[in-house]
C-alpha cells in the first residue's frame, strides 16, 4: 500500500502538465503604444524682438529641460518620436525656428531640421521625426535649445499687433517586446 500511495502521488504530480499551448509565442509579443504630450508654446510680439532702446533683436533663444526621453521605458522601447509644431507668423518677415537637443554637458546631440515660417502664415503645421535609427543619438537628451531667427525686413512696429506664435507637442511611439534589451 505504501508503494501504491507513493506512486499515486508521483503520478498526480507528473501528470499535471500543459498541452495545446505554445509559450514560444512570447517571442511574438509586440505591443505598439503611442503617448502624446504637450511640450512648449509661446506667443511673441514685436516688443519681444526689440530691446529697451528700440533696437531689433533678431535672434531669441531659450533653453529648457524636459525629460522627454528619460527612463528605461524609453531607453528600451521607444522607436520613434514625432515633434509636432503649429506656427502662426503674422509678421511681414520670414522667421526660422531651430530646435536643438543637448546632453547634460550642453553638447549638441541633434539639430532638428529648422522650420522656416513664411510671412503671414497662420496655423501652419510642421512635423519633425526622430527615427528609430536616430533615437540612440537623442536618448541622453537633457535639454533643448530653441532659437527664433527673424529675417530682415520692414521695421518692427509694436502698434501693428503682429505676432509669432507656436505650439509644440511630442508623439512618442513605443514598441514593447519581450526581447532582452
Amino acid at each position: 500500500m505504501k508503494n501504491i500511495i507513493g506512486i499515486l502521488s508521483i503520478l498526480l504530480l507528473l501528470t499535471g502538465c500543459v498541452s495545446g499551448v505554445d509559450f514560444d509565442q512570447i517571442d511574438d509579443i509586440e505591443v505598439y503604444t503611442d503617448h502624446n504630450a504637450s511640450l512648449v508654446y509661446f506667443n511673441l510680439d514685436a516688443n519681444d524682438f526689440l530691446d529697451d532702446l528700440g533696437n531689433e533683436t533678431l535672434v531669441l533663444s531659450d533653453t529648457f529641460n524636459i525629460p522627454v526621453f528619460a527612463g528605461p521605458y524609453s531607453e528600451n522601447y521607444l522607436i520613434q518620436a514625432d515633434f509636432l509644431f503649429t506656427i502662426s507668423n503674422t509678421f511681414t518677415r520670414d522667421i526660422s525656428l531651430q530646435y536643438e537637443f543637448l546632453d547634460e554637458n550642453d553638447n549638441s546631440l541633434f539639430l532638428v531640421e529648422p522650420i522656416n515660417s513664411l510671412p503671414n502664415s497662420i496655423n501652419e503645421e510642421y512635423i519633425r521625426i526622430i527615427s528609430e535609427a536616430q533615437i540612440p543619438n537623442v536618448i541622453t537628451t537633457e535639454k533643448f535649445v530653441m532659437q527664433i531667427l527673424m529675417g530682415n525686413g520692414t521695421p518692427l512696429d509694436p502698434s501693428l499687433n503682429l505676432s509669432f506664435n507656436a505650439e509644440s507637442a511630442v508623439l512618442l511611439h513605443y514598441k514593447v517586446t519581450t526581447e532582452d534589451e
Binding site: L39, V40, F42, T63, N65
Partner: peptide, 19 residues
Amino acid sequence: DTEGIELQFDPDVPSDYWE
C-alpha cells in the same frame, strides 16, 4: 493640469521651466 511650458525668451530672467 497642464498644457506644457510657456517659453519667455527673456535672457535677463532665465527660467528653470522644468523645476
